[in-house]
Design a protein around this nucleic acid. Structure first.
Lengths: 211, 211, 211, 211
DNA sequence: TATGAATGAGCTTTCATTCAT
DNA sequence: GATGAATGAAAGCTCATTCAT
């Protein structure tokens, strides 16, 4: 800590203590659901004593809220980055959101399922913040689609339902996709971007090619 | 059930006893999740004693399984009826499945959410049957789409993903739709059938299909 | 209960269940103090299982409140009876209150010490009622003394302090008196009534005897 | 401690460390009772770490014993000083004891309530010493009264009960008196000395005693 | 048919305390 | 001298379930 060089093992070192506990909680909640998991289960899975767990975290609910908060933040960050790279074009923005969502759902399956389904077990005030963040996530899709409609490139007959369908289909990825198979996440993204375009009836303006 | 005679006061009589219990269980499980609900909660909500509950049902898990089984049966029945009325035409069959699914998800929200998300808390043998039924439900969509492709009326680039998207979007209805608003269930069905057609890139041959 | 004769063992029969539990709680709280006693201790002392205890009482605090309430009620009843028998004469009324208090403190030592010292561990709303009852108890002494002063038979220089001294000395009986010794409770009562008369400087008017 | 030189900043320095801890313990024990207070509560109230507390004191019980011991010593000292100033006259000695007791109870309410009511939570050997000190305190009153009787100035019908009443009424001061009101502690002392004289039926011989 | 009594295992959380640094 | 980490035991309470009546 005070030594000049000797700053190795940062990520690894943190694996002791808080990290093993929250990882264990994540896995347990993901596999069996918040209410079915006991604090003892988490401590056992983390390989620490019950008291050690309570030394680091104030309780079961706090563990859940920590996981949900981090998960949602990571998703929001991914969306922001994707949108930043996409520029103003509505089609590129929708594609960016679909890509970020599919990647998140495919790669952080456990986190993502906790984030979106253990809402009941969270404190009142936490739920308020959480709901707001979810509404913002929805809003990002909504705006991209609305902008595309205004620009004349998207033509969904029922924009709200198209948006819901796009989001639902992305979310569902977490339920069946298992990484490591033949289908890479990039392939998956390609497919879902195309499906999303289909749903909003994307028709590029002007010349995609000229002659 | 199949016997012709001897069907006295069926609906009314059943409301006493078993029915109030299973209804209470349904509501409790739907609102708070299987693991968060205690048998006492259910008995209290049903307005019967704990012992009365155990008189009618062998336990908490059996209540859940009863609900899931009935829910899934009712969905299967609805699908069968819809398919029966649809005949052989793949587009009509897909439309029938979407309509049945959307109706089920919109009108039996509580049931449907229990049926599809409390899978973890069910006995091993029950889960096997349940999974098979879910696979059959998926298979119905799959066959309709495959037939449409073969018939040249559906043209999805990735049939499996299109199918998953169709199912996911129908399922998601349970999460946001609330009956009694401006949008009727029939409106909803119309929209989702169209969205499904969009997803499978339906192009009717010769005489356009009407529904 | 329905049988005509055969109505014996009423008090004895009730000893099963609630009564053994509350008795055990009374003893434990009295001997070791509310906070030092665990619910398990009480159940063990009562010879029932932990769950049986919770079957009859909703929790540790409720046990305490039950004891305090019953204890205070029994004291209030004793005071009311004594006052009723005493009539209007202030000296007789003060004597009645002292007698009732000394008897209560001497004979229900455990109860009385719980009633007056475990105030902290009781619910907010319960404490409100409890305080009111204690104020009423104080008020009974106050009125008897005030009436005696007005009638010219009591002459304390500082009536409030005399009243506090009377009450304090009666209460202290619980701390040292042990029934079964040489000194009977009746003797005790005689002494404390006299001490109380001394404290309020009782001087009977007119002729206690005539000649 | 015994060394002559090197006594820098005594009062101030002691405020850091041990003193803040024992003060915090005193307040907590006084407000909520020994068993209801956790060592963490004390450390938090003192604003020191849990480890710091254990650095200075071996444990919770030791804190209590330290407080009780100091409290009782301060009371004993006060009594000794008062008796020293009172000389041999029994009435002056009784007055001195009442005054010291009332002052202690009125001015060190917290301490005094801990000293006299947390007896249960103290180690066996400590309790032995503590009981002896309490008996000595009682003995001081007893002797003063006995001497007064012998000298013919006190005439209680039941000397032991008069003594108990005197002590009980003094002790009770801690329960209701709050310094800072209209009634000064000196007023209080005057009243209680008079009440004590009343209780022992003090009748000064020849030249009346003044105090 | 229906119920109150009862249970043992388990729940989340807090306890006083120790120890390596 | 002072601290964060860690622990085993125990706290109050609830669980699903069984059983005698």
């Amino acid at each position: 800590m005070t030594a000049p060089a000797a700053a190795p093992a940062p990520a690894t070192a943190r694996t002791t203590g808080q990290q093993v506990i929250i990882d264990a909680a994540r896995r347990e909640f993901g596999e069996r659901g918040y209410d079915a998991v006991s604090v003892r289960d988490i401590a056992a899975r983390a390989g620490v004593s019950l008291s050690a767990l309570y030394h680091y975290y104030p309780g079961k609910q706090a563990l859940l809220e920590g996981i949900v908060e981090a998960g949602l933040r990571s998703y929001d960050t991914a969306c922001a980055a994707a949108l930043g790279a996409a520029g103003d074009d509505p089609a590129r923005r929708l594609a960016a959101l679909v890509a970020a969502t599919v990647r998140y759902r495919a790669q952080q399956q456990v986190d993502s399922s906790i984030v979106f389904s253990e809402t009941r077990s969270v404190s009142e005030e936490f739920r308020a913040r959480h709901s707001r963040q979810l509404r913002e996530a929805t809003g990002r899709f909504q705006r991209a689609i609305a902008d595309g409609i205004e620009a004349g490139v998207f033509n969904p007959r029922w924009p709200d339902d198209a948006r819901r369908a796009v989001i639902a289909m992305c979310n569902a990825v977490a339920e069946w996709y298992r990484p490591g198979g033949e289908l890479t996440v990039d392939d998956l993204v390609t497919r879902y971007v195309n499906l999303a375009f289909t749903l909003v009836e994307y028709r590029p303006t002007a010349p995609p090619f000229s002659f």
